[in-house]
């Protein structure tokens, strides 16, 4: 966790106040990760859950994630739904229109591998990673809105390991099991330091 995540305490205890010391990487990653604007590339059923995630009950905005349909405004493309051969060039072009740095979330089984449309069909691209670099995969047909939110939190962990200097990028270490909103109660031994 970067120092900037504890800005409040740091400012008060710092010598004279008002000064904090952090690395440029930590500051850049912090600001990138905390306001991920999403390009909702919703094509099929998953788009319904994408809408549900950003509405009243699940309220995506509280994570700083806000859907913007214009690729030039956004940081992360959420590919939600089946991508067909007819649609793939459009998705690729939209990805190219997004400004760097940019990330891709593959939401749902269709975007991961074609899902239920893997076999026997002539028109479906089997996974969006055939032509886009995917950072986070969210399984489900369709995934619940909570899973999508968990996916965004995971993406933040990946972003936190990035660097503005390419040779300093660390490998992302993800913690398991999920810290998402779905919890099944504590299992024995859980909750202690791993």
């Amino acid at each position: 966790m970067a120092l900037v995540d504890r800005l409040g305490q740091t400012l008060d205890s710092g010598s004279g106040g008002g000064i904090i010391l952090t690395s440029v990487d930590a500051l850049a990653n912090w600001s990138r990760g905390k306001s991920l604007w999403a390009m909702p590339m919703g094509t099929a059923c998953c788009a319904m859950e994408l809408i549900a995630a950003s509405f009243n009950k699940f309220d995506f905005d509280r994570h700083g994630t806000f859907p913007r349909p214009d690729p030039r405004h956004t940081d992360v493309m959420v590919v939600a739904g089946t991508i067909t051969r007819k649609m793939a060039p459009a998705v690729k072009r939209l990805y190219e229109q997004m400004a760097d740095p940019k990330w891709v979330i593959a939401m749902g089984n269709c975007a991961i591998s074609g899902g239920i449309f893997y076999y026997d069909t002539y028109s479906v691209v089997r996974g969006v990673d055939e032509f886009l670099p995917v950072d986070v995969y969210i399984a489900g047909c369709p995934p619940r809105p909570e899973s999508l939110q968990d996916g965004v939190l995971r993406l933040r962990e990946i972003i936190a390991t990035g660097s503005i200097s390419p040779d300093r990028v660390r490998e992302a270490v993800l913690t398991l099991p999920s810290s998402g909103a779905v919890s099944f109660g504590k299992r024995p031994g859980e909750g202690e330091a791993r």
Partner: peptide, 23 residues
């Protein structure tokens, strides 16, 4: 439904496409 320039007519029983993975 299919893009312009698609070869063949998919709902014919003898339609062949190498990209199709049979279940």
């Amino acid at each position: 439904l299919l893009p312009e320039g698609w070869e063949g007519f998919p709902l014919r029983k003898d339609y062949c496409d190498d990209r199709v993975v049979r279940r």
